[in-house]
Design a protein around this nucleic acid. Structure first.
Length: 574
RNA sequence: CGGGGCGUAGCGCAGUCUGGUUAGCGUACCUGGUUUGGGACCAGGGGGCCGUAGGUUCGAAUCCUACCGCCCCGACCA
């Protein structure tokens, strides 16, 4: 490919609205351009990378026995109403009305459509197991799209669905996908890990997220190097046995203390001279948009884990109560809530169970209570694990030390059980002619996110360093002066030879100065650069530069193809 | 959704507070010339509905109102 005939608008200046390396570099390298918030055009170079990733995904899926389909992007509301997700999915679902006033949505995921297809066609156990997937554009109306294609509203996703006779078979399908996903991310050149995850809006009994490790990741992973435990912090269980430093102290009489204008735990602890772990933090939550308001208690130095709380309550939706609601429930402004003499239901985290002589809000403006004790001064309705695991906690599996890392979620797999098949009556007849419900799994990969994640992991101050397997081109040829016909001829010859040898070659035949070409080549991150200059050409030599290592060396033109071959193999293995 | 900020040439910005020449700078772009191993230089040139719509004024990029778009923070620490 001659660059002079190509469409590769690189930009030298750093885009003002891009925050993270992948976003900045994708714009600068001429891969993407924004059309609206969270909506991007893919330029040729970007598309090439996306196609590479798609092909890896496709190959590994096919290898694992999954079969490609293509479902519609626009889905009638009826299917979503069958599973109840038309209401449950909320504002992220982009709803569309057609000219007949029929309601549709732009599919954010396709459990309903795929299950509908399968229930209409699959009748017998003989047709199972079945694993169908698609690579297709989705739309999720994110609250706040950001970081370029990392969290965009429109995005390409590989979504797959498995259909099995029973849980045992479904577990096998799940494991196959787990293995296939690992292969995909390994081949894409990423450092990643599979971690236990919350099932969120998709639902189901178990799930794993595939996380690419990067400082800029939006998720936090907790892991233990001793036993191999790894989990999203949203999901990670906290071992219940927290030892409170003052557990053995005798209970003192409860007492109300004036704490004018001291609202946060930090402020009150400073004011009273108490440690944060001596506090009971009380938060008022609203459940399912106003159905109920509850108080949630956690030790002052810990954080509430909302997904856990939501799961414990079996709620569809929870949110912190408005200041007005807090006033209604506690008779006090925010900052002074406490469990003593509170009318609503109380959910307590395990961490407060054996606290003695704690501090809490007094449900009265500008007052806190000291020496408040569980059982004597208040009784929780539910006690459970509703907090975020934190640095001092032991590994939930082996009690060793845990670590925290940031990650980018590039894949997510779920065991769904019969959640969708039951709602949509997807059944089959077993060997005895008895009607059974199909057991499902669902599996997603964010295609563009893999590309972005690769950039997050592989870049330097000069630009992108593509993993060989997903690079838009493998080789870039740089003749340093196109006025010199000897250089041009030899560049053309080399382009031809490398192309015949099966390489994807970008030939920078622009009339630009050497510095411009070097800078662009580094920016767009092509793994192998072939530099053709007047110094070497007189000896029949060109220079090879490996983008990842910066290593350069001169090589005879006749040996070039072999050498590129060798370097390619090495890069693919690393 | 709440708070903050920003919309001026393809991109990055100044000018707006304090209204008043022909709206400016860098870069990119076009032409000619010189140059050619890490983002060249000289000369010339083109490019703007100052986000949109109203309003105030003799006069608006600048003041007022509304709307639209975009970005950041928050939406767990009551």
């Amino acid at each position: 490919m001659k660059l002079s005939n190509y469409f590769l608008p690189t930009v030298r200046e750093i885009p003002s609205d891009a925050e993270i390396p992948s976003h900045r570099l994708m714009i600068r390298a001429g891969m993407i351009r924004k059309v609206a918030a969270g909506i991007y055009s893919l330029l040729p170079l970007g598309l090439r990378v996306i196609r590479k990733v798609e092909n890896i995904v496709r190959e590994e899926m096919n290898k694992a026995g999954a079969i490609e389909t293509l479902l519609p992007s626009i889905v009638p509301s009826e299917l979503w109403k069958e599973t109840g997700r038309w209401d449950f999915y909320g504002k992220e679902l982009l709803r569309i009305t057609d000219r007949h006033q029929n309601q549709f949505c732009y599919g954010p995921t396709h459990e309903e459509v795929m299950t509908n297809l399968v229930r209409n066609e699959v009748k017998s156990y003989k047709q199972l197991p079945l694993n169908l997937y698609q690579i297709q554009t989705k739309f999720r109306d994110e609250i706040r799209p950001r970081f370029g294609v990392m969290r965009s509203r429109e995005f390409t996703m590989k979504d797959g669905y498995s259909f099995d006779c029973d849980e045992e078979a479904a577990a096998i399908s799940y494991q196959k996908m787990h293995d296939a996903y690992s292969a995909v991310f390994r081949r894409s050149g990423l450092r990643f890990g599979a971690v236990e995850a919350d099932t969120g809006q998709i639902g189901g009994s178990a799930s794993h997220e595939f996380m690419v490790f990067a400082e800029t990741g939006e998720d936090v992973v907790v892991s233990c190097s001793k036993c191999g435990f790894a989990s999203n912090v949203e999901k990670a269980e906290v071992s219940p046995a927290v030892i409170n430093p003052n557990e053995q102290v005798p209970q003192l009489p409860i007492e109300e203390i004036e704490t004018p204008d001291k609202k946060t735990i930090g402020e009150v602890s400073g004011f009273l001279g108490k440690e944060e772990w001596e506090f009971i933090k009380t938060l008022i939550y609203t459940i399912d948009s106003g159905k109920e308001h509850i108080a949630v208690l956690v030790r002052g130095d810990f954080e509430i884990n909302e997904p856990k709380l939501k799961n414990l309550l079996g709620a569809d939706e929870i949110e912190l109560a408005s200041p007005e609601t807090v006033k209604d429930i506690t008779n006090a402004s925010t900052g002074f809530a406490g469990p003593h003499k509170l009318e609503c239901r109380i959910v307590a985290d395990n961490s407060i169970e054996n606290m003695v002589n704690a501090v809490s809000g007094a449900n009265r403006d500008d007052y806190h209570l000291i020496n408040i004790n569980i059982g004597r001064d208040f009784t929780p309705d539910i006690v459970g694990d509703v907090r975020l695991i934190s640095l001092g906690d032991p590994c939930p599996k082996c009690r060793d030390t845990i670590e925290f890392h940031r990650g980018i979620e590039v894949g997510h797999i779920f065991r769904l059980g019969t959640k969708y098949s039951e709602a949509m009556k997807a059944t089959y007849l077993d060997t005895n002619g008895k009607k059974k419900t199909i057991v499902m799994g669902t599996y997603g990969i964010g295609i563009a996110r893999i590309a972005a994640a690769a950039i997050e992991q592989c870049n330097d101050e000069n630009g992108i360093i593509w993993p060989y397997s997903i690079a838009p081109f493998q080789v870039v040829i740089i003749p340093l002066n196109i006025k010199n016909s000897e250089l041009v001829n030899s560049a053309n010859g080399i382009e031809e030879k490398l192309r015949e040898a099966g390489f994807e070659v970008l030939h920078d035949d622009r009339n630009e100065r050497a510095g411009v070409k070097f800078a662009d080549a580094d920016l767009i991150g092509i793994p192998i650069q072939v530099i053709i200059g007047p110094r070497g050409i007189s000896n029949g030599e060109v220079e090879i530069k490996v983008r990842a290592t910066g290593e350069r060396r001169n090589i005879k033109i006749e040996e070039l193809t072999d050498e590129v071959q060798k370097i390619s193999v090495k890069l693919l293995e690393s």
